[in-house]
């Protein structure tokens, strides 16, 4: 059952990615029009869609920083210590 479901999802990857984009847009709309931000701790959290921007920048930033860090001699061959 699990396998069939996953196969079905994999067969419709394009629709799935569109659904994902729609979901992000929906979340943005909810953030801008619905959520009461009275209890936010900082001014920047009142910026429309702040956490979406934050998530995207941080997600991309972490991957890029980690890869850069790995290239500074941190990543070595597996037999390095042997």
């Amino acid at each position: 059952m699990i396998v069939e479901f996953l196969d079905y999802l994999r067969a419709h990857l394009r629709a799935l990615s569109r659904l994902g984009i729609a979901f992000i847009v929906l979340l943005l709309c909810i953030d801008i029009f619905v959520i009461d931000k009275q209890h936010a701790h900082t001014a920047i959290q009142h910026f429309p869609g702040f956490w979406t921007i934050f998530g995207f920048v941080v997600g991309a930033g972490l991957i890029i920083v980690a890869k850069w860090f790995g290239r500074q001699g941190i990543r070595q061959k597996e037999d390095y210590y042997d």
């Binding site: 994902g20 934050f54 995207f56 997600g59």
Partner: peptide, 18 residues
């Protein structure tokens, strides 16, 4: 609602970046 919205936004945007 604010916490749920924050979490879902961060997660969805990170997934997009990935």
């Amino acid at each position: 609602p604010m916490h749920i919205s924050e979490t879902m936004q961060v997660v969805a945007a990170t997934a997009l970046a990935c």
